[in-house]
Write a protein that binds this DNA or RNA. Structure first.
Length: 289
DNA sequence: ATCCTATGTTGGACGGTGCC
DNA sequence: GGCACCGTCCAACATAGGAT
């Protein structure tokens, strides 16, 4: 499936693109492109990969990514079932860094905007009131035409550049080392892990998908994701378990065994190392919100 | 919660291959 | 030749799962 999320064909005659997505699931391909991207999820749940960040996404999730930052909004597995009625809906805006023209961007008045664009190279998750306002404005921009839509995008970027309500997604140490030719291989790996993380997955079988030996693949994977294979797998499993604990109100043991863990002791250990809380504490903290 | 241990994973050192 | 990429070997380390 090719959707607007994968390609970003901004026609040479246009300053930017804003479009609504409404599909059975979001584009399942890990990829990157030279455009900035502002993406809000309106409907759907899954796991969001941005650089070396792995987090769950749900409606309202608003993320701003910079040029060539690899990303993927992977819908949950139930979205890929043939007769599923589930929908993945969102609004995405793409623009180039020269969208305002370098003449303006280099001036003092655009200082905070330049800072924003630098931060976006790590990926920004927009939070709180800023997120709520930007989501409204993104919805609004779809109904605008001509220069009015450009003004609205400038308003959005201005609001983003003035806000402190954000989290940086990728870690300081992350930089994209992927080449275009790597994305097919990494997508096979991603697909396999996302389809099978609830069972045992061995490095060896994933390495085979990449046509590499386990040793080479281990190094290759770490160099491109900034995580070891085990860390990566563990974060996906814990993300899934967190969802089960909160959204399905499952018991800790149930969530553990349905997320690819085979012992509670290991599950508790991994959970705490990622969330800083035990599964029970995490569940209680959420229910008190 | 903590410890123990078999097993799996990681990454350094080094070498081979293909490409520019 | 220089470089990128990957394989092999192997020691060190990390982890999973079981025992207490």
């Amino acid at each position: 499936m090719k959707t607007a999320l994968q390609k970003s064909p901004i026609p040479a005659t246009q300053a930017f693109i804003a479009r609504r997505l409404d599909d059975p699931y979001f584009d399942p391909n890990w990829h990157f492109h030279p455009e900035y991207q502002l993406f809000v999820v309106l409907e759907g749940t899954g796991t969001r990969f941005v650089g070396d960040s792995i987090e769950r996404f749900r409606p309202g999730d608003l993320v701003f990514t910079g040029p060539n930052l690899p990303h993927l909004w992977r819908s949950d597995q139930e979205y890929f079932v043939g007769n599923s009625n589930l929908r993945a809906r969102g609004v995405v805006i793409y623009f180039h860094d020269n969208f305002l023209g370098s003449a303006l961007l280099e001036k003092n008045e655009a200082f905070s905007l330049r800072q924003l664009m630098t931060k976006a190279t790590k990926g920004l998750k927009i939070l709180g009131e800023t997120s709520r306002r930007i989501r409204q404005m993104m919805n609004g921009i779809l109904g605008l035409q001509d220069f009015e839509s450009v003004i609205k995008l400038m308003e959005i970027l201005h609001l983003l550049s003035q806000s402190t309500e954000y989290d940086l997604l990728s870690s300081d140490g992350y930089s994209n080392t992927l080449k275009r030719s790597d994305t097919d291989r990494m997508n096979r790996v991603h697909d396999h892990i996302m389809a099978h993380f609830q069972q045992r997955i061995k490095l060896e079988e994933v390495a085979a998908l990449a046509y590499m030996t386990p040793s080479s693949f281990s190094r290759y994977f770490k160099s491109h994701t900034n995580k070891t294979f085990s860390q990566f797998l563990s974060e996906i499993r814990i993300g899934h378990a967190s969802k089960l604990l909160i959204e399905k109100e499952m018991s800790v043991a149930e969530a553990c065994f349905k997320s690819g863990f085979y012992t509670l002791s290991n599950f508790n250990r991994q959970f705490k190392s990622i969330h800083g809380l035990s599964p029970t504490e995490y569940k209680q903290a959420y229910l008190q919100l």
